[in-house]
Simulated assay, not measured.
Amino acid sequence: MSPATKAQQKAVAKYMKDNYDELKVRVPKGAKERIQSHAEKHDESLNGFVTRAITETMERDGSASESK
């Protein structure tokens, strides 16, 4: 696979900015690897697992959630 061109990188950055919010999560040392391993065991990406965990917790807690 060849590296992305500057134009491709710019297009991806614009798409991400227009369609996603970023959220930085800090966890204790070692926790990231445990979370990543759990996600992989369930055939999920780290991002997918964290998003699902947050959404399911909000639904359980009765908070309104907006999903795309």
Rank of each mutant, 00 (worst) to 15 (best):
M1D: 09
M1T: 07
P3F: 01
P3L: 07
A4R: 12
A7V: 03
Q8F: 02
Q9T: 03
Q9F: 00
A11D: 08
K14W: 02
K14Y: 05
Y15T: 08
M16V: 15
K17D: 15
D18Y: 01
N19D: 06
N19A: 04
N19M: 04
Y20A: 06
D21W: 02
D21H: 11
E22S: 14
E22Q: 13
L23C: 13
L23R: 07
L23N: 03
K24L: 11
V25T: 05
V25M: 08
R26M: 10
P28L: 00
K29V: 14
A31T: 12
A31Q: 10
E33N: 05
R34F: 05
I35S: 06
S37D: 14
A39L: 05
A39C: 07
H42T: 01
D43H: 11
D43M: 03
E44F: 06
S45N: 01
N47A: 15
G48K: 02
G48I: 01
G48E: 10
G48M: 04
F49A: 00
V50I: 15
V50L: 15
T51G: 04
T51S: 14
T51I: 12
R52M: 09
R52N: 13
R52T: 12
A53F: 07
A53Q: 05
I54G: 03
I54H: 00
E56K: 06
T57L: 09
M58I: 00
M58D: 07
M58H: 01
R60H: 11
R60F: 09
R60K: 14
D61E: 15
G62M: 07
G62H: 03
S63G: 00
S63E: 14
S65H: 11
E66G: 09
E66H: 12
E66F: 14
E66Y: 13
K68T: 12
K68Y: 12
K68G: 15
